[in-house]
Write a protein that binds this DNA or RNA. Structure first.
Length: 332
DNA sequence: CATCCACGGGAAAAACAGGGTC
DNA sequence: GACCCTGTTTTTCCCGTGGATG
C-alpha cells in the first residue's frame, strides 16, 4: 500500500510548495541580492510549529542554489545542536573545512575561518531561540559574508536574551510571519502526500478531514499521523487505511514525539519526569523530596530547577502558579 | 507589611571529552 | 594504554527579585 515511504517522512521536501507562495516569494526577495553578489538582509521567520517555516527556508535556498553557483548554504537545527561549538562546527562542516577541527579548537578560530570564506554564505538557524549563548548571534552577525535566516516560534523568545543593539539590528531584518495551516490547506497537503506515497484510494476524504482536524494546523503532526496510520495498515497487510488505523495513529504520533524528547534526557532528568508522572501535581518541595529518595546520588535543588525548565521547554512538564503556591505536573 | 518560598542569573568549581605525547 | 592539556559542559553555591500569604 505504501508506494514511496520517503514522501511520508518529516524531512521530505516536495518539489512544488503549496499554500506558502506568498511567504516563499518574500524570502526569495529578501535573499535576492545574493544573485548579484551582494549581501542580502538577514531574515526572520516566525510562526507556530508545523506552519512551514523550515520547509520554505529549505525550498528557497534550494531554488537559489540552482540559480547561483557561487553561494554556500547551511541548515542547522539549533534544537539538536544548542551550543556554540556544535553550531559553528555544523556551519564549517557544510563548507567542508572541518578537517583539522577538534574539541579544543578555540571558538575564535572557528569564527575566523567563517570570516575567510569568499562566497556569500546563507545560513538557516532553525529553532534559533534554543541557542544557549545569545552572544553567538552577535558574533555571526558581525561576519560580513554571512546572512542568517533565523527561524523561531516566538520572536520574543529569540530576542529576550539579546542586548538592545543586536535586538534592534535584527528587528530591521526581513520578518516573515507564518500562520498555522487552515484545515483545507492541511487536507490538500495530505492529499498530495497520499497521491505521491500511497496507492490510489488508500486514504478517504473523510480520513483526510479527520487527520487535518486533529493536527490543529500543524503540518508536521498531520504528516506524522498519516505516516503512522499507513505503517499500521501496511503491517496488517491491508490495501487501504482504515479508520481504526487513524484512531490508533493519533496517540501513537504524539507518543513518538514525546519519546523523541525523552530519549534526550539524562537519568536524573528522567527521574524528575517520572516522579511527576507517577504522583501527578506536586509542589516543588515535595517534588524534590521524592526525586531525592528515588535516585542514589541526587542533584541539588538548583539543578533540578534547571531540569524542570528544560522539561517545560520540551513540553513534557507544565507548571502553574507563582511563588510558594507553584505546582508542577507532567503533560498528559 | 513581614515573611516565606521559589525562581533564575551569574560565578566558580567539578566533571568530562578528545587530542597529543610518551 | 596511561597521562596531561585544553576547552566545554554540568553542577553547585550565592544571592537579588518578586509573588503569595497571613
Amino acid at each position: 500500500m505504501i508506494q514511496d515511504a520517503r514522501v511520508l517522512q518529516d524531512d521530505y521536501l516536495p518539489r512544488e510548495i503549496v499554500h506558502r507562495h506568498e511567504e516563499m516569494s518574500q524570502l526569495a526577495t529578501a535573499l535576492e541580492p545574493v544573485v548579484e553578489g551582494d549581501r542580502p538582509q538577514h531574515a526572520l521567520l516566525t510562526g507556530p510549529s508545523g506552519s512551514g517555516k523550515t520547509c520554505i527556508a529549505r525550498a528557497t535556498l534550494d531554488r537559489l542554489q540552482e540559480q547561483v553557483l557561487d553561494v554556500h548554504t547551511a541548515h542547522v537545527d539549533c534544537w539538536l545542536h544548542p551550543n556554540d561549538f556544535r553550531i559553528l562546527y555544523k556551519l564549517l562542516e557544510s563548507l567542508g573545512t572541518t578537517y583539522d577541527i577538534h574539541r579544543s579548537t578555540p571558538l575564535d578560530e572557528l569564527l575566523e575561518r567563517l570570516r575567510e570564506i569568499d562566497k556569500p554564505y546563507l545560513v538557516v538557524l532553525d529553532e534559533a531561540d534554543q541557542i544557549d549563548d545569545p552572544d553567538l548571534l552577535r558574533r555571526l552577525y558581525s561576519i560580513s559574508g554571512l546572512t542568517m535566516i533565523l527561524i523561531t516560534n516566538h520572536e520574543r523568545d529569540l530576542f529576550r536574551p539579546l542586548d538592545e543593539r543586536l535586538q534592534s539590528r535584527l528587528r530591521s531584518s526581513d520578518t516573515i510571519e507564518f500562520d498555522s495551516y487552515r484545515r483545507d490547506e492541511l487536507v490538500s497537503i495530505l492529499s498530495d502526500r497520499a497521491a505521491w506515497g500511497l496507492t490510489d484510494g488508500a486514504l478517504t476524504t473523510d480520513q483526510r478531514q479527520r487527520i487535518a482536524e486533529t493536527a490543529c494546523g500543524n503540518a508536521r503532526d498531520a504528516i506524522s499521523i498519516l505516516r503512522s496510520a499507513a505503517r499500521h495498515a501496511e503491517r496488517k497487510g491491508s490495501d487501504r487505511i482504515r479508520d481504526s488505523d487513524i484512531e490508533t495513529a493519533i496517540p501513537a504520533a504524539r507518543a513518538e514525539l514525546r519519546q523523541k524528547s525523552l530519549d534526550r534526557l539524562t537519568t536524573d532528568q528522567l527521574a524528575v519526569y517520572d516522579v511527576l508522572r507517577e504522583c501527578g501535581e506536586l509542589m516543588p518541595k515535595e517534588l524534590l523530596a521524592r526525586y531525592e529518595e528515588r535516585v542514589d546520588d541526587p542533584k541539588s535543588m538548583r539543578t533540578v530547577r534547571k531540569y524542570l525548565r528544560k522539561l517545560e521547554q520540551y513540553n513534557l512538564v507544565e507548571s502553574s502558579g507563582h511563588g510558594p503556591s507553584r505546582t508542577y505536573s507532567a503533560v498528559s
